[in-house]
Simulated assay, not measured.
Amino acid sequence: MAEKPTENSLRRSVAPALVDGHIHPDKTSWGGPWMSRRPAADLRQLIDNDRVTQAGYTRGVEERAYALLSEARRSGTLAMRAHVDVSSELGIANVEGVRAAAERLPGLTVQIVAFPQFGLLTNPGTLEAMAASLDAGADLVGGIDPGGIEGDLHGHLDAIFGLADARGRDLDIHLHDGGEDGLAQIREIARRTVASGRHGRVTIGHAFALCDPSLPSLGATLDAVADAGIWIATCALGPDPVPDLDLLERHGVRVVAGSDGVRDSWSPFGTGSMIDRAHLLAYRTGAITDAELERAYRLASTAGGEMLGIEELSGPVTESSPTRLEFSAESIAQLVVDRPAPLRVIRDGVDLIAS
């Protein structure tokens, strides 16, 4: 077998900055002692475990989020969509903690989603807390499984679209529900996206129902998603299903990659590195060709920049671009496979590693 090229044998290549399209920095245990996880048989148990874990942390949200966000920036992530828990119990404390952490990291753009992880209609007072969080550093309105968790598709969507309308905000909705029911929920979100004039301003995270090619209405649902300009955020985590990227591309559906939870109660895995996530997405989707590997990098970088509306992070770069990453690698394809740490992380001409 041929030896792996050494760093000195590889030319320095430039690449677009990485963008994490879906991450939960308020939940992380990053930088702290090892945390053993409890087993969970379903989504509700995972959420219950998360509630207990968050209540038991001895380090505050800002400290834990800062540790993770710092690591992400060192790894080349210059922007992220952060889903942050808001509830009647937590109030807006997690949003304030993540926003404070982000403000300590020049060069890192953090969009915060007010996320009703513990329920909205089923947890009275949460909608009011979400509204307050939009004044305390949150940028978008979130949602959580209107059917499977809330048990009221239209009531949940009425609440979050209503709040988004009242405050002029975009939406990013978690949707784990699978099967035809999951697809029906996605089509209703698409219908409301078009009706409210939000083309391109709504994201659905996970969208596991879109990953099942056996569902009869999958094609029609993908067309509805594309027509509404809805973004799909996938994380390729553990046993979670991943979408057929070729199929989604053929239907015109836009996709971004994200980390999801990093070293939290949900999973012991995750590094905060979107290079690692691009590698995992490529592996999970059977990438072989350079074009397929390059697509994985694009979903972890410029696609996220486009979703977040950040022009400087949305297109190709050159050796003279003021915002870029530099690696020892022959190509983007090799970068995705080998996962080297960036040599330089540059935004607006400033090397964030050196500084």
Rank of each mutant, 00 (worst) to 15 (best):
G270H: 06
I112V: 14
I346P: 02
H206S: 04
L127K: 00
P106T: 04
P241S: 09
I23C: 14
E128S: 07
L90Q: 07
A190K: 05
I310M: 01
I310N: 01
R104C: 04
G137F: 05
D181I: 13
G137S: 08
L90C: 03
E249H: 13
K27P: 01
Q117C: 01
L183Q: 08
D165H: 12
V336W: 05
G60P: 02
A159R: 02
G238L: 14
G178W: 03
D165I: 10
G151V: 04
S328D: 07
S331V: 04
A132N: 10
P25G: 06
R99W: 01
Q334E: 14
R167K: 15
R51H: 12
P239C: 07
G125T: 03
V61W: 01
V256Q: 11
A114L: 02
R192H: 10
A138D: 07
E311V: 15
I332G: 00
P16W: 12
F327T: 00
P322N: 11
R192D: 08
S196R: 15
V98Y: 01
L157F: 05
P116V: 04
I310P: 01
T28E: 09
A93N: 05
R104W: 06
V86E: 05
R324T: 11
E294P: 00
G304L: 08
A114H: 02
D276V: 03
L134W: 08
S320M: 10
I275M: 15
I149C: 09
P216N: 08
R104H: 10
E63N: 02
L210G: 02
L210Q: 04
D139R: 13
A354R: 15
H83C: 01
A136D: 05
G91K: 01
R201Y: 05
I332A: 02
I160H: 12
G219W: 12
A93F: 02
R74D: 13
S88M: 07
H156Q: 07
S75P: 04
L120N: 00
S88A: 15
T323A: 10
G32Y: 13
S75G: 13
S9T: 14
Q111T: 13
G305C: 03
H199F: 12
P340Y: 01
T126A: 06
S265T: 05
N8F: 13
G155M: 13
K27V: 03
V52T: 11
E326I: 08
D264L: 00
Y283I: 06
G258L: 09
N49G: 05
R73D: 00
G238N: 13
A159L: 08
W30T: 04
D276L: 04
V202K: 02
P124K: 09
L281M: 13
I23A: 09
L157G: 01
A67V: 08
M274Y: 09
L105P: 02
I149A: 14
D165P: 11
L352I: 11
R99K: 07
E62D: 11
T109Y: 00
G151P: 02
L134T: 12
L140H: 09
P39E: 10
L210V: 14
S75V: 06
P216K: 10
L18A: 14
W34V: 11
S301H: 10
Q117R: 03
Y283V: 11
T318R: 12
T302M: 12
A55E: 06
L153G: 01
T77D: 13
H24M: 12
G119H: 06
I160K: 11
V262D: 08
A131H: 06
S259I: 09
L18Q: 07
A329I: 02
